[in-house]
């Protein structure tokens, strides 16, 4: 069959909401777009552990520390689900790491901002994870099966991340003056970067139309951003805090909140690598990879030695010939 017929059949499947699975024919561009998007998403989960890792040893109580540890562990897991999904498209894990470490692949710019107070853990949970959920819920209906399934799993776990973040802010908002100030300060610093997480405005987002046609994306960047603003503008009232936007106002006609212009110069500047923490994040990541090299090699060497001795791992030691189900 020629490529054009295959492409027509492919789009027909997409239009009928039939999922695409790893071994199905797909256009090269679809494969490339997915590899780019999923690996970028995976990198974001992994780099996303760093700003929070910063506070594990300094969490204000054992309860908070255990929660933060569990959250960071979840993010490592999310990275793994996503890397696995990308690998079904024919790229190796090492290739993806290499792209990240050599700056060829991006990750979400939000993680290039510093976490300078404990309240930042709250703001990240509420706003950053909140924005991520807004993005990820529609992705769990994405046309590519492995990506959609990874997103279902992630969304289930992500909800605890957002709730624990809001709880941190709620606690601070009921605290003393200094704690309330800390809470407001964190919201002020994370609000705009969180809005930028949805990506450039629809007019400046060249891939959106194609991604929508392929049902990789279900909503445009601006649609999701608006939804997020509407939700947060209400939620912030529970904290007795404000969002740092003087133009934020309910628009009765549109049934949406109006909000002020986003500083896209800042966005592109951070994307290009000039954010407050770009260099630090990447070098921490590379260092972790390099420090782990001997572990990876030792584990392989051990496995090879075992294989050479014809030793086979079997939990029950003798059930090889019996059907396991």
């Amino acid at each position: 069959m020629d490529t054009i017929t295959l492409a027509i059949q492919f789009q027909k499947k997409i239009d009928q909401d039939i999922k695409i699975e790893p071994r199905d024919w797909m256009p090269d561009e679809y494969r490339k777009t997915l590899i780019r998007q999923i690996s970028q998403h995976a990198h974001s989960e992994v780099v996303g552990m760093l700003p929070e890792g910063n506070w594990i040893t300094r969490a204000p109580s054992l309860r908070r520390k255990a929660i933060l540890l569990a959250k960071v562990q979840d993010e490592a897991g999310h990275g793994l689900y996503l890397y696995s999904a990308a690998e079904t498209l024919g790229i190796t894990r090492d290739e993806m790491y290499q792209q990240l470490h050599t700056n060829k692949a991006k990750y979400s710019s939000i993680f290039n901002y510093p976490t300078i107070s404990w309240a930042d853990m709250g703001a990240i949970g509420w706003l950053v994870d909140g924005a991520a959920i807004m993005n990820q819920v529609p992705l769990s209906r994405c046309s590519y099966g492995p990506y959609a399934r990874a997103m279902v799993r992630i969304c289930k776990e992500e909800s605890f991340h957002q709730r624990q973040g809001f709880e941190i802010l709620l606690t601070l908002s009921k605290g003393n003056k200094a704690q309330q100030k800390m809470c407001q300060d964190a919201i002020n610093r994370w609000w705009w970067p969180a809005l930028m997480m949805f990506g450039p405005s629809d007019n400046d987002s060249p891939h959106t139309a194609q991604s929508m046609q392929w049902k990789i994306k279900r909503f445009t960047n601006d649609e999701l951003r608006q939804k997020f603003v509407d939700v947060c503008a209400e939620q912030v009232k529970f904290l007795g805090m404000t969002l740092p936007d003087k133009d934020l106002k309910w628009n009765e006609a549109k049934q949406h909140y109006d909000f002020g212009p986003i500083n896209w110069d800042e966005f592109w500047n951070v994307v290009k690598g000039n954010g407050p923490c770009n260099k630090e994040r990447l070098s921490t990541r590379i260092q972790a990879w390099e420090n782990g090299a001997w572990v990876r090699e030792a584990a392989l060497a051990y496995e090879e030695k075992k294989a050479a001795r014809q030793y086979s791992y079997d939990t029950e030691n003798k059930t090889n010939q019996v059907p396991v189900s």
């Binding site: 979840d74 897991g77 689900y81 690998e87 399934r149 496995e303």
Partner: peptide, 28 residues
């Protein structure tokens, strides 16, 4: 219930694969 495919991971051997699967796919 039947075993169901949940995903994949990298490991040096089967024992490590089971341990990693425990950590990644059965946290809840």
């Amino acid at each position: 219930l039947d075993h169901k495919h949940v995903g994949s991971l990298h490991a040096a051997d089967a024992a490590m694969a089971i341990e990693n699967a425990r950590d990644v796919y059965t946290r809840r």
